[in-house]
Design a protein around this nucleic acid. Structure first.
Lengths: 202, 202
DNA sequence: CAAATGTATTGAACGGTGTTCAATAAAACA
DNA sequence: TGTTTTATTGAACACCGTTCAATACATTTG
């Protein structure tokens, strides 16, 4: 009986259609300015139907949150070809910053939107942990290669993410105007470069 | 004629009353969850009257934004007694992080709420620039004392703020659960310590 | 003092938000 | 065919920021 299968497929398609609409409106207007009615009208449905396919706005948030991390991880994995762990670590940071520049809204969603901690143990944040693990392993690799001796790898990982995230966060929340600089891109890249200069000495 | 003076004073008092209500509700519920009606009912007035004393919600934002920075600067100035610029720089970072821990909502307001860039050149953000200048001067002091040789002080300043801000931002937006740690306080302080360890080598 | 002026406050209203739900249309099953 | 299941609608609810006519009050003027 292929009917139930088709039904399931159609339901899945509808879910995807809503998600596509949500992503589009969200990338245009930013997450905060995106309403359920916007999403619904984007795909020419009534607003109510979204609640038949998603629990609430939070569930859509989690889906796009996941999407963002999977996009980021895909871009980071390109660097798997770089063998030297420290070189890869430095390149990862640059890739991370470029991701924030090119996907400001995804970045806001992933790191800067406050969304209830509910489902925090679920799969929604599992992929975030995966991204952290990627960085953590990189740090361990560096230590095995003799770098960052007698530094705690946990705190070091947290610190490296913090430093890189800080650059992106100031950019994504438009807090860079207190600095004298030509472009945000230039500020961020040179700022990161001076962090790397510190890492080199570690 | 002291009547106009009293009138002015009363108007000022009303402005302050609203601001006090706004601060209270905001510190309880967070900025995003604070409505004009909440603020009004907190001080037992109708919501409309706020618009007689303030242009819009954004103006209240700017006032509290300013308050936050002035509070932060006050706490930083305690460290003026520390003579050695590098010691003062390190202590400033710790004070900054402590400020974020103890004033999460102020911190969100100051660095993590997206508020239109309008009035960005005005006095509202002037105090933010003052805070940056504080840090910038500290960095220059370190360089005069022989530290951070041949590093651009602008980018270095930006980087140091970014690193410290990153720690606070992850905390304030509840993005620390991807790390294994006992408490947020412990994670943040040790994370900052490992940043300081890098700075020591610069 | 009474009337007129100006200033402060209210409460209703507008168009928006996320969300729920009875009614309904459509499809699948008996 | 009629019945049951599933998907969709549109109205409604309680909230939001904001505006504005009406109103109460304080002060100044006649």
């Amino acid at each position: 009986m292929g009917i139930t299968e088709r039904k399931q497929r159609e339901k899945q398609e509808m879910r995807q259609r809503i998600l596509n609409g949500a992503r589009k409106v969200f990338l245009q207007n930013g997450y905060e300015q995106t309403s359920m009615r916007n999403i619904a009208s984007e795909i020419s449905y009534s607003a109510g139907v979204i609640y038949f396919h998603f629990k609430d706005k939070g569930e859509i948030f989690h889906e796009l949150h996941k999407e963002g991390f999977s996009l980021l991880l895909r871009q980071l994995r390109v660097l798997d070809s770089v063998i030297d762990p420290f070189e890869r670590l430095k390149a990862s940071g640059r890739a991370f910053i470029r991701f924030a520049q090119e996907n400001k809204d995804y970045y806001n969603l992933m790191f800067l939107v406050e969304e209830p901690l509910k489902n925090s143990e679920e799969s929604g944040f599992q992929i975030a942990k995966e991204a952290i693990k990627y960085l953590h392993d990189l740090v361990l690799g560096c230590q095995q290669a003799g770098r960052f001796k007698d530094m705690d790898p946990e705190y070091l990982t947290f610190m490296i993410l913090s430093a890189t995230h800080g650059i992106c966060a100031l950019f994504c929340k438009d807090r860079t105007m207190s600095f004298e600089h030509k472009t945000n891109k230039e500020l961020m890249e040179n700022g990161y470069a001076s962090f790397v200069a510190l890492l080199e000495k570690g």
